[in-house]
């Protein structure tokens, strides 16, 4: 639901995996924006009702952009930049009890 403006002059891309699927995204983007440019809608499902959600603020306030990145759970994806090889898992509702480490 987001796309590069025509004023973009860098075509550099990096490769990340989203739920195991390799995806090419623009280098330097905040992860939340890269996910939205990759057409990920919704970004997650809420932990209470499972309702579809996507980022509201993109500035670290609303926590609607939480995803799991590499070994870290519930990361604010608007506050970190994409990195080559980054592995992203989308948050689908509450974490099942049995998967707790």
């Amino acid at each position: 639901m987001f796309s590069p403006a025509s004023a973009v002059d860098s075509q550099e891309h990096v490769s990340i995996t989203i739920n195991g699927k390799e995806t090419s995204v623009r280098a330097g983007l905040p992860l939340a924006l890269a996910l939205m440019e990759a057409g990920i809608t919704p970004l997650r499902h809420s932990v209470v009702s499972g309702a579809p959600r996507s980022p509201l603020c993109l500035m670290g306030v609303c926590f609607e952009c939480l995803v799991h990145v590499d070994d870290s759970r519930n990361v604010e994806s608007c506050m970190i930049e994409v990195r080559q090889g980054m592995s992203v898992e989308l948050a689908n509702g509450p974490r099942p009890m049995e998967s707790a480490p």
Binding site: F2, L29, P30, L33, E37, L56, L58
Partner: peptide, 17 residues
């Protein structure tokens, strides 16, 4: 989204809805 978020998308990645 908040309108400010769209501006942040432009600033941080030249990205538009």
């Amino acid at each position: 989204l908040n309108a400010g978020a769209a501006q942040i998308a432009m600033k941080s990645g030249a990205s538009i809805p």
